[in-house]
């Protein structure tokens, strides 16, 4: 009789513990390369790539100015991106006149609505390729913020 009570208690304990698991969202490490007109994008300025899932937190990665390489981060640096379908945007800006940005790649890639980039993430990868079409703006005149009279705030 007492053994039966113990067994029941242990059973209830397991049921309670089972409720303490992780949430169902799976984040997998993802890195890759942005390619422009078929070659790794060497924009000369730092760019950013944003992955927006259907539901859940977006992931952002910094694009290497020399070879287009990026690593995505959702909550912590380099942790990756949620599994599933994503809309993707890419922005690469230089500091132009008045501190305003000059987009070095076609502006449509900056907005989810117009970028036309959709990626499905099934699992971890280190070789995701994002293909863009140029033209890439080169030899853009950039400005030093201090010379623009920008108040640095300190």
């Amino acid at each position: 009789m007492i053994q039966a009570h113990f067994a029941a208690m242990i059973g209830v304990g397991f049921v309670i513990l089972a409720g303490c698991g992780e949430r169902g969202e799976i984040i997998v490490p993802v890195s890759g390369t942005v390619r422009l007109d078929g070659a790794p994008m060497a924009a000369g300025e730092v760019g950013f790539i944003t992955f927006q899932p259907r539901a859940g937190r977006a992931a952002i990665g910094k694009i290497d100015p020399s070879n287009g390489a990026f690593t995505l981060s959702t909550n912590e640096a380099g942790d990756g991106v949620l599994v599933g379908e994503h809309e993707v945007t890419v922005s690469v800006n230089a500091t132009g006149a008045g501190g305003n940005p000059i987009s070095l790649i076609p502006k449509k890639y900056q907005e989810f609505a117009t970028s036309g980039l959709n990626v499905t993430i099934d699992g971890p990868t280190d070789s995701l390729i994002i293909e863009l079409e140029g033209p890439l703006k080169r030899h853009v005149k950039t400005y030093d913020p201090a010379a623009l009279g920008d108040d640095p705030g300190f």
């Binding site: 950013f48 952002i60 981060s73 922005s91 640095p152 705030g153």
Partner: peptide, 24 residues
């Protein structure tokens, strides 16, 4: 920075992470 923030980056993007600009 100070007192003027934007919703460009997701909420709870920690300092230095996400899409950044580096004027100085």
């Amino acid at each position: 920075l100070d007192s003027l923030r934007s919703t460009r980056n997701p909420v709870n993007t920690l300092p230095g992470m996400g899409e950044v600009h580096k004027p100085y």
